[in-house]
Design a protein around this nucleic acid. Structure first.
Lengths: 142, 142
DNA sequence: TTTTAAATTGTACAAATTACAATTTAAAAA
DNA sequence: TTTTTAAATTGTAATTTGTACAATTTAAAA
């Protein structure tokens, strides 16, 4: 089971204790490529871990975020979403379906980096630039 | 009172009925340049309109958003924020203080427009690109 | 001035998330 | 391996943010 090993390593590297709940939550996030909410994650992970508490899912996700192995992403709709892809990327977002996908583009990143290197923003120390690319997915079946 | 006249005109142009609550909410949003939450707006506007209902603030803000004179903005922290500046712009955002400010930059917009004109994103019809510029405000008392 | 559709209000409700105390468990120490 | 301990999990309850809805009031058109 290579997948689980990788997850264990990831948790371990982040200095987190290994628990079945944490493994299952991370596995669920990685498999679902849709940036699920805490509630969606709870429903999925409950199948493999009956008796799982919603609170645990919140705690686990929070621990992941604090340790930098998951990013919180907010959309304009209801709940917070969780993204296990932490390398630099942007998001495609469709308002009508509240669907969100990753958008990787090194060329764009280079362009932005160049631009902001010369650009001084008064009174602001820049750390990161994220794009939210808003539009419509063409085959919007959720 | 030029300010109030302008606000009345803005509401009127948007096809909205003029009410003291709506005037006061819009005035509060425009004066506070910090993209306040509904709750903050409620607290402020309550000072001039005692007996104001929180529900009204939500209703009013919602009407503003539906009619395009205010934008909803979500940050990584708790509540939805409201921005009375509706021309194209981006946001500076400080995670530690949850503070947010507008960032206007026509040159950047030109750059992005150019870039995305040539860039086809498979299965996605692009409508808009927004930047969230993350960093620290230098005089940010937390 | 009258009329009426829309806005405001208050209450109750709902969803998403957090606080907290009790229990269990992972993993370090013996 | 067993013991120890700090951390993780759980369940309940509370909180925060926002919405639904019926009754009342009001802006503004007729």
């Amino acid at each position: 089971m290579k997948r689980v090993d990788e997850i264990v390593k990831k948790l371990s590297d982040a200095g987190l204790k290994i628990t079945p709940q944490r493994i299952a939550v991370m596995q669920s996030l990685v498999e679902a490529k849709t940036h699920p909410t805490a509630e969606e994650t709870y429903r999925r992970v409950s199948q493999s871990i009956p008796g799982l508490s919603p609170t645990t899912v919140y705690n686990v996700l929070d621990a992941f975020v604090r340790n930098g192995i998951v990013n919180k992403v907010k959309t304009d709709a209801g709940a917070m979403r969780y993204d296990p892809v932490t390398d630099n990327h942007h998001h495609l977002y469709c308002e009508s379906s509240d669907r969100m996908e990753d958008f990787h583009d090194p060329e764009l990143d280079r362009l932005l980096e160049e631009y902001f290197q010369n650009k001084k923003i008064h009174g602001f120390r820049l750390k990161d630039v994220k794009l939210q690319i808003v539009g419509e997915f063409e085959n919007s079946k959720k």
